[in-house]
Protein backbone atom coordinates (compact mmCIF):
# COMPACT_ATOMS: atom_id res chain seq x y z
CA UNK A 1 0.00 0.00 0.00
CA UNK A 2 1.38 3.35 -0.96
CA UNK A 3 1.72 5.75 1.92
CA UNK A 4 1.89 9.45 1.56
CA UNK A 5 3.08 11.82 4.20
CA UNK A 6 0.83 14.49 5.51
CA UNK A 7 1.72 17.79 3.84
CA UNK A 8 3.90 19.80 6.21
CA UNK A 9 1.63 22.33 7.84
CA UNK A 10 2.40 25.72 6.51
CA UNK A 11 0.95 29.14 7.21
CA UNK A 12 -2.53 29.69 8.66
CA UNK A 13 -4.88 26.70 9.00
CA UNK A 14 -8.55 27.00 9.99
CA UNK A 15 -9.12 24.83 13.09
CA UNK A 16 -12.61 25.33 14.56
CA UNK A 17 -15.45 27.81 14.32
CA UNK A 18 -15.00 30.76 16.68
CA UNK A 19 -18.44 29.99 18.10
CA UNK A 20 -17.11 26.68 19.42
CA UNK A 21 -14.79 28.45 21.85
CA UNK A 22 -17.49 29.60 24.23
CA UNK A 23 -17.14 30.13 27.95
CA UNK A 24 -14.48 27.98 29.56
CA UNK A 25 -14.57 25.24 26.94
CA UNK A 26 -11.31 23.67 25.78
CA UNK A 27 -11.68 22.49 22.18
CA UNK A 28 -9.42 20.11 20.28
CA UNK A 29 -8.35 20.16 16.67
CA UNK A 30 -6.21 17.68 14.84
CA UNK A 31 -4.23 19.42 12.13
CA UNK A 32 -1.21 18.04 10.26
CA UNK A 33 -0.98 15.01 12.56
CA UNK A 34 -0.76 17.34 15.55
CA UNK A 35 -3.29 17.49 18.39
CA UNK A 36 -4.00 21.06 19.36
CA UNK A 37 -5.90 22.32 22.41
CA UNK A 38 -7.79 25.56 21.84
CA UNK A 39 -9.13 27.76 24.61
CA UNK A 40 -10.27 31.33 25.05
CA UNK A 41 -9.17 33.32 28.11
CA UNK A 42 -11.30 35.79 30.07
CA UNK A 43 -10.09 38.64 27.84
CA UNK A 44 -11.26 36.81 24.74
CA UNK A 45 -7.77 35.89 23.57
CA UNK A 46 -7.50 32.46 21.93
CA UNK A 47 -4.70 30.05 22.85
CA UNK A 48 -3.61 27.32 20.42
CA UNK A 49 -1.37 24.88 22.27
CA UNK A 50 0.13 21.51 21.64
CA UNK A 51 -2.38 19.21 23.35
CA UNK A 52 0.23 17.71 25.63
CA UNK A 53 1.40 18.64 29.10
CA UNK A 54 5.22 18.83 29.12
CA UNK A 55 5.24 17.06 32.49
CA UNK A 56 3.65 13.68 31.81
CA UNK A 57 2.18 13.95 28.31
CA UNK A 58 -1.41 14.41 29.52
CA UNK A 59 -3.82 15.85 26.97
CA UNK A 60 -4.40 19.43 28.06
CA UNK A 61 -7.83 19.42 26.41
CA UNK A 62 -9.06 17.53 29.50
CA UNK A 63 -7.86 20.35 31.71
CA UNK A 64 -9.71 23.29 33.23
CA UNK A 65 -9.80 26.76 31.74
CA UNK A 66 -9.79 29.27 34.64
CA UNK A 67 -9.93 32.28 32.34
CA UNK A 68 -6.26 33.11 32.89
CA UNK A 69 -4.63 29.68 33.05
CA UNK A 70 -5.19 26.15 31.82
CA UNK A 71 -4.85 23.58 34.61
CA UNK A 72 -3.64 20.11 33.69
CA UNK A 73 -6.05 17.38 34.79
CA UNK A 74 -3.31 15.05 36.00
CA UNK A 75 -1.15 17.00 38.50
CA UNK A 76 -2.73 20.45 38.50
CA UNK A 77 0.13 22.25 36.77
CA UNK A 78 -1.01 25.72 35.68
CA UNK A 79 -0.04 27.20 32.33
CA UNK A 80 -0.49 30.90 31.56
CA UNK A 81 -2.64 32.22 28.77
CA UNK A 82 -0.51 33.75 26.04
CA UNK A 83 2.92 32.36 26.90
CA UNK A 84 2.12 28.75 27.82
CA UNK A 85 4.64 29.09 30.66
CA UNK A 86 4.04 27.07 33.82
CA UNK A 87 3.22 29.39 36.72
CA UNK A 88 2.37 26.86 39.45
CA UNK A 89 3.29 23.28 40.31
CA UNK A 90 1.05 22.15 43.22
CA UNK A 91 3.51 19.45 44.35
CA UNK A 92 5.99 22.27 45.08
CA UNK A 93 3.80 25.26 45.88
CA UNK A 94 6.62 27.40 47.27
CA UNK A 95 8.96 26.98 44.34
CA UNK A 96 9.16 28.75 41.02
CA UNK A 97 8.39 26.40 38.14
CA UNK A 98 11.36 25.68 35.86
CA UNK A 99 11.47 27.64 32.60
CA UNK A 100 11.48 24.42 30.60
CA UNK A 101 8.02 23.61 32.01
CA UNK A 102 6.21 25.35 29.18
CA UNK A 103 3.60 24.17 26.73
CA UNK A 104 4.41 24.42 23.04
CA UNK A 105 2.32 27.28 21.68
CA UNK A 106 1.15 28.15 18.18
CA UNK A 107 0.12 31.52 16.80
CA UNK A 108 -3.64 31.93 16.60
CA UNK A 109 -6.03 34.32 14.90
CA UNK A 110 -9.77 34.73 14.40
CA UNK A 111 -11.10 35.58 10.97
CA UNK A 112 -14.13 34.74 8.81
CA UNK A 113 -15.79 33.21 11.87
CA UNK A 114 -12.99 30.68 12.43
CA UNK A 115 -10.08 30.17 14.79
CA UNK A 116 -6.89 29.75 12.76
CA UNK A 117 -3.68 28.11 13.90
CA UNK A 118 -0.40 29.50 12.62
CA UNK A 119 2.11 26.88 11.56
CA UNK A 120 5.55 27.55 10.05
CA UNK A 121 5.77 30.78 8.08
CA UNK A 122 2.41 32.10 9.29
CA UNK A 123 2.64 35.86 9.15
CA UNK A 124 0.17 38.71 9.46
CA UNK A 125 -3.43 37.48 9.47
CA UNK A 126 -5.19 34.67 7.62
CA UNK A 127 -6.25 36.06 4.27
CA UNK A 128 -8.12 34.32 1.47
CA UNK A 129 -7.79 37.28 -0.90
CA UNK A 130 -11.51 37.73 -1.41
CA UNK A 131 -14.25 40.02 -0.21
CA UNK A 132 -16.31 38.30 2.46
CA UNK A 133 -18.32 39.50 5.46
CA UNK A 134 -16.61 40.08 8.83
CA UNK A 135 -18.73 37.56 10.76
CA UNK A 136 -20.26 35.26 8.18
CA UNK A 137 -22.72 32.43 8.72
CA UNK A 138 -20.48 29.39 9.25
CA UNK A 139 -21.39 25.83 8.26
CA UNK A 140 -20.81 22.70 10.23
CA UNK A 141 -17.25 21.44 9.71
CA UNK A 142 -16.84 17.88 8.43
CA UNK A 143 -13.88 15.51 8.25
CA UNK A 144 -13.43 13.68 4.92
CA UNK A 145 -11.35 10.54 5.09
CA UNK A 146 -9.46 11.43 1.94
CA UNK A 147 -6.26 13.32 1.15
CA UNK A 148 -6.44 17.11 0.97
CA UNK A 149 -5.63 17.19 -2.77
CA UNK A 150 -8.53 14.84 -3.54
CA UNK A 151 -10.98 16.90 -1.47
CA UNK A 152 -9.73 20.09 -3.10
CA UNK A 153 -10.21 18.51 -6.56
CA UNK A 154 -13.75 17.47 -5.73
CA UNK A 155 -14.69 20.90 -4.37
CA UNK A 156 -13.31 22.45 -7.57
CA UNK A 157 -16.05 20.52 -9.42
CA UNK A 158 -18.77 22.31 -7.45
CA UNK A 159 -20.88 24.92 -9.26
CA UNK A 160 -18.95 28.10 -10.01
CA UNK A 161 -15.83 26.95 -8.16
CA UNK A 162 -12.91 29.37 -8.06
CA UNK A 163 -9.71 28.55 -6.16
CA UNK A 164 -8.66 31.20 -3.65
CA UNK A 165 -5.11 29.99 -3.02
CA UNK A 166 -4.37 26.36 -2.17
CA UNK A 167 -6.81 25.88 0.72
CA UNK A 168 -9.90 28.00 -0.03
CA UNK A 169 -12.51 27.66 -2.76
CA UNK A 170 -15.38 29.99 -3.57
CA UNK A 171 -18.49 28.21 -4.88
CA UNK A 172 -22.11 29.02 -5.75
CA UNK A 173 -24.63 27.20 -3.59
CA UNK A 174 -28.21 26.72 -4.80
CA UNK A 175 -30.83 25.34 -2.45
CA UNK A 176 -34.54 25.61 -3.16
CA UNK A 177 -34.91 29.07 -4.63
CA UNK A 178 -31.90 30.54 -2.83
CA UNK A 179 -28.59 31.07 -4.52
CA UNK A 180 -25.56 32.38 -2.72
CA UNK A 181 -21.83 32.54 -2.76
CA UNK A 182 -19.94 30.45 -0.19
CA UNK A 183 -16.34 29.65 0.67
CA UNK A 184 -14.91 26.25 1.63
CA UNK A 185 -11.70 26.00 3.64
CA UNK A 186 -9.75 22.73 3.59
CA UNK A 187 -7.22 21.67 6.23
CA UNK A 188 -5.13 18.48 6.24
CA UNK A 189 -5.60 16.51 9.46
CA UNK A 190 -3.40 13.65 8.32
CA UNK A 191 -2.33 12.18 4.99
CA UNK A 192 -5.80 10.60 4.66
CA UNK A 193 -8.09 12.98 6.51
CA UNK A 194 -9.15 16.46 5.52
CA UNK A 195 -11.26 18.90 7.49
CA UNK A 196 -13.74 20.89 5.38
CA UNK A 197 -15.00 24.16 6.82
CA UNK A 198 -17.37 26.53 5.05
CA UNK A 199 -19.15 29.83 5.38
CA UNK A 200 -21.58 31.99 3.45
CA UNK A 201 -19.68 34.70 1.59
CA UNK A 202 -22.66 37.05 1.66
CA UNK A 203 -25.31 38.07 4.14
CA UNK A 204 -28.04 35.45 4.71
CA UNK A 205 -31.49 36.59 5.91
CA UNK A 206 -32.45 35.20 9.32
CA UNK A 207 -35.36 33.17 7.90
CA UNK A 208 -33.12 31.46 5.34
CA UNK A 209 -30.38 30.43 7.77
CA UNK A 210 -31.72 27.19 9.17
CA UNK A 211 -32.93 25.74 5.83
CA UNK A 212 -29.62 26.75 4.27
CA UNK A 213 -27.54 25.11 7.01
CA UNK A 214 -29.59 21.90 6.74
CA UNK A 215 -29.40 21.71 2.97
CA UNK A 216 -25.69 22.53 2.96
CA UNK A 217 -24.94 19.86 5.57
CA UNK A 218 -26.81 17.24 3.51
CA UNK A 219 -25.02 18.32 0.35
CA UNK A 220 -21.58 18.14 1.99
CA UNK A 221 -22.33 14.69 3.43
CA UNK A 222 -23.33 13.43 -0.03
CA UNK A 223 -20.16 14.88 -1.50
CA UNK A 224 -18.15 13.20 1.24
CA UNK A 225 -19.70 9.82 0.43
CA UNK A 226 -18.73 10.05 -3.24
CA UNK A 227 -15.15 11.08 -2.43
CA UNK A 228 -14.60 8.57 0.34
CA UNK A 229 -16.10 5.80 -1.84
CA UNK A 230 -13.02 6.05 -4.01
CA UNK A 231 -10.44 3.92 -2.30
CA UNK A 232 -7.38 6.11 -2.19
CA UNK A 233 -5.44 3.65 -0.11
CA UNK A 234 -5.69 0.99 -2.84
CA UNK A 235 -5.30 3.17 -5.90
CA UNK A 236 -2.42 4.96 -4.26
CA UNK A 237 -3.82 8.25 -5.43
CA UNK A 238 -3.13 11.15 -3.15
Amino acid sequence: MERTNVPAADGWVAAVRSAELVGRHVAIARLADTDIALWRDADGRVNAWENRCPHRGMRLSLGSNTGTTLICRYHGWRFDSGTGACSFIPAHPRQIAPKAAAVRTYASAEKYGFVWVGFAKATGQPDIADTVPESPLTFRSLTFHAPLAAVHDALMHETGAVALGATAIRVQLRFYDTELSAVYLVAAQSAFATLVHGFAAEAVPESARLPLLRAQAEHLKTLRKTIVAQDYALTGRA
Partner: peptide, 25 residues
Protein backbone atom coordinates in the same frame (compact mmCIF):
# COMPACT_ATOMS: atom_id res chain seq x y z
CA UNK B 1 -8.16 5.07 33.64
CA UNK B 2 -9.20 8.21 31.68
CA UNK B 3 -5.98 9.93 32.74
CA UNK B 4 -3.80 7.05 31.61
CA UNK B 5 -5.65 6.69 28.32
CA UNK B 6 -5.05 10.37 27.53
CA UNK B 7 -1.31 10.45 28.02
CA UNK B 8 0.70 10.85 24.83
CA UNK B 9 2.63 8.93 23.85
CA UNK B 10 1.04 5.83 25.37
CA UNK B 11 4.42 4.17 25.65
CA UNK B 12 6.58 5.29 28.53
CA UNK B 13 9.34 7.60 27.30
CA UNK B 14 12.60 6.52 28.94
CA UNK B 15 14.75 9.35 27.66
CA UNK B 16 15.17 11.80 30.55
CA UNK B 17 14.63 14.75 28.17
CA UNK B 18 11.32 13.64 26.67
CA UNK B 19 9.15 14.59 29.66
CA UNK B 20 9.87 17.08 32.41
CA UNK B 21 10.00 15.61 35.93
CA UNK B 22 10.22 17.65 39.14
CA UNK B 23 11.45 16.54 42.55
CA UNK B 24 8.05 15.02 43.38
CA UNK B 25 8.54 12.67 40.43
Amino acid sequence: KPILENQRPSRLPLDPRSELPVRAD
